[in-house]
């Protein structure tokens, strides 16, 4: 075996690997791709650890993707002087996180809960998988995983090719969209211009998405697919709905008893999405009851002219520019109408 063949092979391997990876990175950047972070387990756990910051220094956000798109973290930080801690998880019900925070005696801070009824009231099957995985990861994270997270985050901040959501092997194979047999369930994919995630876990759509109606229509088709799914799912029984409200009230009471502050927020949605939501989740039966049961403050976008006018290009999430408008209005309402105090209110 004592021959030099592996040395030559190793040099060739290095040359091919470095050249190909570099070419792939350059190609992606030239095609307009930008840095995006994997928002699951490790990054979620990283932000979850910050909830113990004093309430005058931070606000925690939980919910679904709307909270992640519609809250501009930089605007929030600039206006309030406080750190926004984004713990919302796209496509997931926020109640496991509410439960986690309520049972964490050290959490006494401010909490903004996004209410996307279809996810919040827990009627989609499997809409707790990612958030439960994230919570499990947070509770079981090993020292080795912590270090890996910091290295991974550094690399993700430098390399576009590490966008797992769109450029990984699995994502590329799925993007082939090979037709399935009848009856096979497969969730459709979103165009890659739709969802990018920064280190603060804020989601944003690209300029191309904002300006390209065909891309927006692709996402609208995904929502129509979701509505079709919804048709096959029986509505929550009165008993189940009562249990959901009771559980929310119980958790809200625990946090408020420790001095925490909670506000529910119904972020904008438009078009057929909003129409469908109104039909399935009439305001008086869900939103109004939620506020009445929990005795918490609430901000519904239809109650505020500025929010009501905001347009979601794909019916459900705001553009980065409108996220700034939304965040400013949110801070104003919280400060002026809901009695929330912030370290520094600079200006609207």
């Amino acid at each position: 075996m004592a021959n030099p063949s592996l040395q030559k092979a190793a040099w060739l391997m290095l040359a091919i690997t470095i050249t190909t990876a570099a070419a792939w990175e350059i190609h992606l950047r030239k095609s307009g791709a930008s840095i995006s972070y994997d928002e699951t387990g490790p990054l979620w756990a990283h932000h979850r650890k910050k909830v113990y910051m004093p309430s005058e220094e931070a606000t925690v956000f939980i919910g679904s993707s709307r909270n992640k798109f519609d809250l501009d973290t930089k605007t929030w930080q600039d206006l309030t002087g406080e750190t926004p801690i984004q713990l919302a998880q796209e496509g997931n019900c926020p109640l496991p996180v509410l439960d986690d925070l309520a049972n964490d005696k050290n959490f006494k801070g401010k909490l903004v809960i996004d209410v996307t009824e279809g996810l919040f009231f827990d009627i989609f099957p499997g809409n707790r998988i990612e958030i439960n995985n994230a919570l499990k990861y947070y509770k079981e994270e090993s020292p080795a995983q912590k270090l890996s997270f910091y290295i991974n985050s550094f690399l993700e901040s430098k390399l576009v090719l590490l966008d797992k959501e769109y450029f990984s092997l699995s994502a590329k194979l799925k993007a082939l969209q090979i037709p399935n047999r009848k009856g096979v369930f497969e969730f459709p994919i979103f165009p890659m211009e739709f969802n990018h995630v920064n280190f603060e876990r804020q989601s944003w759509m690209t300029d191309r998405f904002v300006n390209d109606t065909s891309l927006q229509q692709q996402v609208q088709k995904v929502w129509l697919f979701v509505f079709d799914m919804l048709k096959n799912i029986p509505p929550l029984s009165t008993h189940d709905l009562d249990s959901v409200f009771a559980s929310i009230k119980n958790n809200v009471d625990k946090i408020q008893a420790r001095g925490g502050k909670i506000v529910f927020v119904r972020t904008p949605s438009n078009g057929p999405f909003w129409m469908g939501e109104q039909m399935v989740f009439p305001r008086e039966k869900f939103w109004d009851r939620l506020l009445a049961t929990t005795r918490c403050a609430g901000i519904h976008f239809t109650d505020y002219p500025v929010l009501k006018e905001l347009i979601c290009p794909e019916w459900s999430h705001l553009t980065p520019a409108d996220a700034v408008v939304h965040t400013k209005e949110l801070v104003r309402i919280l400060h002026e109408e809901k009695g929330w105090k912030f370290s520094t209110i600079k200006s609207r």
């Binding site: 092979a9 190793a10 060739l12 690997t17």
Partner: peptide, 28 residues
């Protein structure tokens, strides 16, 4: 087997293994 194959074949195969490893991004 690796030593029996031409060095350039092993070099290419080795590079493919690493590139697919980077590409798959299933790290932990």
């Amino acid at each position: 087997v690796a030593y029996k194959a031409p060095w350039w074949v092993i070099g290419i195969v080795w590079a493919l293994l690493l590139l697919l490893l980077i590409w798959s991004q299933e790290s932990t």
